Simulated scan of single mutants.
Amino acid sequence: MTVTLASATLASLSHRTGLAVLDHLERSARIPVVDGLHAQGDLIVVPLPLIAASVEARPRARWTEVPPEGVELLRGAAGGNPHTLVADPGTCRWTADVADAEGLALGIFEASAVVYLLHPEHGGTGCAPGAYVVRRQREQWSRGPALGARLVAD
Rank of each mutant, 00 (worst) to 15 (best):
Met1Ala: 14
Thr2Asn: 13
Thr2His: 10
Thr2Glu: 13
Thr4Phe: 02
Leu5Val: 11
Ala6Cys: 10
Ala6Asp: 13
Ser7Tyr: 04
Ala11Cys: 07
Ala11Met: 03
Leu13Val: 04
Ser14Trp: 02
Ser14Tyr: 03
Ala20Thr: 13
Val21Met: 01
Leu22Tyr: 09
Asp23Glu: 13
Glu26Asp: 15
Glu26Ala: 13
Arg27Pro: 00
Ser28Leu: 14
Ile31Asn: 00
Pro32Cys: 08
Gly36Ala: 10
Gln40Val: 14
Gly41Ala: 15
Asp42Lys: 06
Leu43Ile: 09
Ile44Arg: 13
Ile44Phe: 04
Leu50Trp: 10
Ile51Glu: 12
Glu56Thr: 08
Arg58Ala: 15
Arg58Ile: 08
Arg58Tyr: 00
Pro59Asp: 08
Ala61Asp: 05
Ala61Arg: 05
Thr64Gly: 09
Glu65Ile: 05
Glu72Met: 10
Leu73Ile: 13
Leu73His: 07
Leu73Pro: 01
Arg75Thr: 13
Gly76Phe: 01
Ala78Val: 12
Leu85Arg: 05
Val86Ile: 15
Ala87Ile: 03
Ala87Cys: 07
Asp88Gln: 13
Thr95Val: 07
Val98Ile: 05
Val98Thr: 14
Ala101Gln: 15
Glu102Asp: 14
Leu104Ala: 14
Leu104Tyr: 09
Ala105Asn: 08
Leu106His: 12
Glu110His: 09
Ala111Asp: 01
Ser112Tyr: 01
Ala113Met: 03
Val114Asn: 08
Val115Gln: 06
Val115Asn: 04
Tyr116Asp: 01
Leu118Asn: 00
Leu118Ser: 03
His119Ser: 01
Gly130Thr: 04
Ala131Trp: 02
Ala131Lys: 11
Tyr132Met: 09
Val134Pro: 03
Val134Leu: 15
Val134Ile: 15
Arg135Lys: 14
Arg135Asn: 12
Gln137Asn: 04
Gln137Met: 14
Gln140Leu: 11
Trp141Ala: 09
Trp141Val: 11
Gly144Tyr: 05
Ala146Val: 15
Ala149Pro: 00
Val152Glu: 02
